[in-house]
Amino acid sequence: MSRRHIDIVLRALPAWLVPLAFLGIIELAMRASSIESDGLALPSQTAAALLGLITDGEIFLRTAETIGAIAVGVPIGGTLGLLLGVWLGLSPTAARLASLSIELFRPIPPVAVIPLMMLIYGLGIRMEAAIIAFACFWPMLLLTRDAVLGVEPRLIEVARILGLPRRKQITKIALPAAVPRIFTALRLTLGIALIVAVTTEIAANPIGIGYAIISAGLSLRPEVMYAFLVWLAILGWLLNESLIAMHRRLFGAAYGDAAT
């Protein structure tokens, strides 16, 4: 085959071949070497386990629990962070007064409030949602504040030149200008929410994907554990892809390249 032909073939290769080939190689290598370990499972066993979890619906049940906690926690923590962030971005006085408190609270790792939330809410979705809300509040707050502070100063000058009253400067200029970056903040926050949800489930809360993973591990069923890990990867990927697509749809033409 000539150089050119190789190039054509290479260019036609889809990216999903890479993980597939990777799994194939692992499968072959494991079969050839016949390693035995409690922590390992053949990719084919994992696939079978995943299929089993899908057919008996367990994976959807677990996913619903995790996503449910996220769906409650992110709107609460995110909205509070968003509102406060906008306020701090607009008011230098508020920002100055709040800065110390933020810097004190923010470094607390979200998992450190698990015991506290257990005391308040017991186990279950509510306590997990509360931890997620706490975890999402801070990045949303800071990123929103920065988004508002980062609004092109020239645009604020345009608003002043046009004689827009302060309230309209905010609603017509500052907030729309900050929206793409606030959306990016939301994307980041959702990623954090997924991490915190699964962590909480592994550490304390007997629901959701995290709990399924640790149960599978403790009952020495590595193929189920891998199946859930693969599922998590797919979930995270889907989440991000759909948010990116949404970002493009919402802000593509209007915001040019500045949005991404």
Partner: peptide, 19 residues
């Protein structure tokens, strides 16, 4: 600033609302 005074900014790329 006053509405009576208009200015065409030098950096036009930044003076328009992109949205």
């Amino acid at each position: 600033p006053s509405r009576d005074v208009a200015i065409v900014f030098q950096d036009y790329g930044r003076a328009l609302l992109p949205w």
